[in-house]
Amino acid sequence: MRTKLPEDYEVVFDFAAIGMALLSLDEEFLKVNTNFYEFFGYNGNEFAEMTFTELVHHEDISMVIEEIKKLLSGQIPTFHLESRFLHKSGEIKWGLFSFSLVRDGKGDPLYAIVQIQDITSRKRREDNLSYRVEFERFVSTMSTRFINCPVDKIDEEIISALEKISQFLNSERIFIDHPSGITPSSTQELAEPFSEEDIRLIKVVGEVIFSAIQRKQTEIARQNSEQLISAAFAGSPALMMILSIEGRGVIDVNKTFIEALGYDRNELLNINIDELSNLVRPSDYERIYECLSQYGSVLNREIEMITKSGAKRK
């Protein structure tokens, strides 16, 4: 993989501060400088078996190929792009690269020159800043979302919040490069620790999640309590009736009450507060009403009930 350049250009090419490569018109590598090797991590023999577009990230390759086609067809003299590339280690790197053609005296293309500048650190900082703004917006609306969230959807909201935290923590890990010869997987480290603002945002999310969990536990306990009370009410051997204190009449009656007085359930539920005297001896009803009005409760008092057939039961 060797193409001879004029001596002056050879020096510029080899010692350029950015990566440079000469490509055939079929995108095969003819010559590569040191910075180009370091950017991708491959050696000369490996580059000899590759084409340039094989190094481009799959999500950007269509864009790059389209520009190369325009260049080869003469529609444009050169182009510049920011694109993602794949390092030999599998790491995704960002590069600002230019692609130009070298032509002979007749204007026919001989080969292409690719120049690439490593902008990975800058792109990571931009991504981190963008995600920080998004995360701050998420935190600012989080409390409202949890307050308005139905209890059965709280788990979904918690999972979503934890995913956001995970993404935020990962985005904040800006990696710095180490000298060549050491694998990135074993040498990447945090360039900056978390700031006080980072920690504050994470704490806010944690507090909101904790409150949501408490709210769900309270609701579950309430539902369980209601179920226990409902089961005790329905299965009690005693006659039980639930009345509205707002004058709406009977709210519910248990099975024992229905069987004892001989009424249909719907008949009892349609009775208003003034008609309750039809179920209880009038004198007992008056004493019950008086106690409720004065003390708010009636305890351990025998009363005489009147069945649907008119029979009396104590």
Rank of each mutant, 00 (worst) to 15 (best):
E49P: 01
M50C: 10
T53H: 09
T53N: 10
T53P: 04
T53Y: 01
E54H: 12
V56S: 01
V56F: 01
H58I: 15
H58Y: 13
E59T: 15
S62R: 15
M63V: 15
E66F: 05
E67A: 12
I68A: 07
I68W: 06
L71F: 07
S73N: 13
G74Y: 07
Q75H: 13
Q75I: 12
I76S: 05
P77C: 10
P77K: 13
H80T: 13
S83Y: 01
S83M: 09
R84K: 12
L86M: 15
H87A: 08
K88G: 03
K88L: 11
K88D: 02
S89T: 07
G90M: 11
E91I: 06
I92Y: 03
G95N: 01
G95D: 00
F97R: 03
F97Y: 04
F99L: 15
F99I: 13
F99H: 14
S100I: 05
L101P: 06
L101Q: 12
V102E: 06
R103K: 14
G107K: 13
G107H: 04
D108F: 08
D108Q: 11
D108H: 08
L110R: 12
Y111H: 11
Y111D: 05
A112Q: 04
I113N: 04
I119P: 00
T120G: 03
T120E: 03
S121G: 05
R122V: 08
R122F: 06
R122D: 00
R124K: 12
R124F: 08
R124Q: 11
R124C: 00
R125A: 13
D127H: 08
N128C: 07
R132L: 13
R132H: 09
R132C: 06
V133S: 05
V133Q: 00
F135V: 02
F135L: 00
F138C: 01
V139Q: 05
V139W: 04
S140T: 12
S140A: 15
T141F: 12
M142K: 04
M142S: 00
M142D: 02
M142A: 01
M142W: 07
M142T: 01
S143C: 02
S143K: 15
S143W: 07
I147T: 12
N148K: 14
N148M: 11
C149T: 09
C149W: 02
C149H: 00
P150C: 02
V151G: 02
V151Q: 03
V151C: 03
D152I: 07
K153D: 09
E156Q: 07
E157A: 04
I158Q: 06
I158K: 11
S160W: 12
S160D: 04
S160H: 09
L162A: 07
K164F: 14
I165H: 00
I165C: 11
